[in-house]
Design a protein around this nucleic acid. Structure first.
Lengths: 342, 342
DNA sequence: AAACGTGATGTTAGCGCTACCATTATTTCT
DNA sequence: AGAAATAATGGTAGCGCTAACATCACGTTT
């Protein structure tokens, strides 16, 4: 009557199960489960017996079954708009480093800046009963926001600050844009272009532009915008520099939406013998390491990317472990780093 | 007798289930399941009825339960040694782009170059009944290799070529090392240092060094190695350049284990006014975009990183969909890209 | 008209685990 | 020593879904 007689149902070519371990150790399945989940609740002698049975039969626990039964999966669903952008990688890295230590796994999703895709991803991921959800940005489709609100687990919206569903970790992009614009104006630049790429998708670059424009308008200056229709990469920055020089030959500074563009422009200027900042000043955003190694050093606004990931993780873990999480919104701030490029 | 009377067991504050949808649509649960999994097996009229019931009750399918019942999860476990290294990000990006399109999710793990951690990750991930497993490299602990062999799903070992458990997609690092060394020797360099960082961990850099050394020995040259004890980043490359200039003042070329180090050194040389390649030549490995934008352009060996990810994904998908997968090993090759730095 | 397909839908029995409660062993107290 | 408290272990019933088989409706064949 043991399972030597295969039930007529499913084919039984599976891995050993808890029951197999239990039989081997001469205990019940639940005891084996306890050894795995709350070892202290089992007498040391029993525990050792079970542990060696686990080794002996080569047991690998089935987390699907466990999660289904306990309605908790120790999986964190993380949704980012892009994996081509180092920024999000660093955020993920920050998440990983904290979550992994606490025994959480990361299920990774990539929306490619598409809100519909984001919605689908959220739906799918919620199907895994994740312990928590980390999602980039505050803009979601209505349907998406609806199911997010309905969901009862912790949700961290990261990168930017504002009206969040639950936890919010990020920085004020508009203020970051203002900060750099102020720096440029103060340095005496007067014909300052803003260069972004696909600003409709990367709307956080748009927020920075809004801040930038405010400051320039207050200073009585124009705020021309060049929106490139290519990915933010060195090549695009180089091309943008050429375009600006062509379109606005009198421009004396370019405020780039990010360091990739800015660095591309700066290195291009190096190659072309265009003097930075004498001929034209260049500023970026993010504070990527490369900016500190080019000549001249890139002026940029440093965003604490890994810190965002780590803080989001810590907030979530605290929440999951039942600690009170007082502030729901965390401003990680930013730092203006002035190099020789402005 | 319906579940309006909550069973005395678990608290029922859950999301709506298949049964709820079924009741709403006036069909059985399995029909709803069919609408979700094989819509063509359901009459269009019924299907529409079920679909609107799904919308009405706000049903989100529980993938844990489904995966447990069907023993297939559409999750791909991907294990990389580091998330700080762009190379692996690009590989993951390649995996993502293929898998996402076929409805697979990626469960991401990071070993930090630790084989014991790799083993633990593999154990945990196998507990999710993944559809397939992608793992970086061919070196694993014995215990790890044992459970991998025992597992019946597709396993792709990526990045390097050799004795693989199942699928193998990568390139011959030793040959890549040889290739660059040959280039340097042929260009007339004679005192060539190899610089890596933490070569014991990044053993693929070690394989490239082996190839490098072979060529140099054949040419009757010495092959000094400098192994930095810091992460591969610009800073470390810069420091390495200083060290080499100090230790081997007559060195005429440096073969760096990767482009991060090489670029760091090159940009440092730019700042210090050290002539590249007149004073000393610099070569890298990977073909990161930055190398094409620095002055002079970095000589490097381009590794098709995204292609590795994509090809691994395609092989796995083919296997999962029952197509015959003829070759188990795929050499994605590499390309020597000669810039002005050598 | 009876027998036979075919396609759509339903019934049942698990997938492997854990929550809940019950039971038994062990320790502590009076 | 016996009662009471506590610790350790076990039995049972699901978690929500799907595989396998059963059934049913309806048209087709002989």
């Amino acid at each position: 009557m043991s399972n030597s007689t295969p039930k007529r149902h499913r084919k039984r070519v599976m891995q050993p199960t808890l029951a197999d371990v239990a039989r081997e150790a001469g205990v019940s399945a639940i005891t084996v489960s306890r050894v795995l989940n709350s070892p202290d609740a089992v007498r040391p002698a029993t525990r050792r017996r079970v542990e060696s049975a686990i080794d002996k039969v080569g047991y690998v626990r089935n987390l699907l079954a466990g999660s289904l039964a306990s309605a908790s999966s120790r999986v964190i669903a993380a949704i980012v708009p892009s994996l081509s952008n180092v920024v999000f990688i660093e955020v993920i890295n920050g998440l990983q480093s904290e979550f992994e230590r606490h025994g959480y796994q990361i299920l990774l999703g990539n929306t490619d800046y598409d809100l519909e895709r984001e919605y689908q991803l959220v739906r799918t991921f919620l199907g895994w009963s994740p312990s928590a959800l980390v999602i980039t940005g505050l803009r979601h489709s209505d349907a998406c926001r609806r199911i997010l609100r309905q969901w009862e687990g912790p949700i961290a919206e990261i990168m930017e600050l504002g009206e969040a569903i639950d936890l919010n970790i990020g920085l004020d992009h508009r203020e970051a844009g203002r900060c750099m614009a102020r720096h440029l104006v103060q340095k005496g630049y007067r014909r300052i272009a803003y260069v972004a790429s696909r600003i409709a998708l990367d709307y956080r670059a748009g927020l920075r532009y809004d801040g930038h424009r405010e400051v320039l308008q207050d200073a009585g200056l124009e705020a021309p915008l060049l929106d490139m229709d290519q990915l933010s990469q060195f090549e695009t920055g180089a091309r943008a520099l050429d375009e600006i020089v062509g379109l606005h030959p009198d421009a004396d500074a370019i405020h780039f939406a990010n360091d990739d563009l800015a660095t591309g422009a700066l290195l291009h200027a190096n190659r072309q013998g265009i003097g930075i900042p004498e001929k034209i000043a260049i500023a970026g955003f993010n504070g990527l390491p490369i900016g500190r190694h080019v000549t001249p050093r890139l002026t940029t606004v440093v965003s604490p990317r890994e810190a965002i990931g780590r803080m989001a993780a810590r907030q979530i873990i605290a929440r999951l472990e039942g600690e009170p999480v007082p502030r729901r919104s965390h401003d990680v701030g930013f730092i203006l780093e002035v190099g020789g490029s402005t």
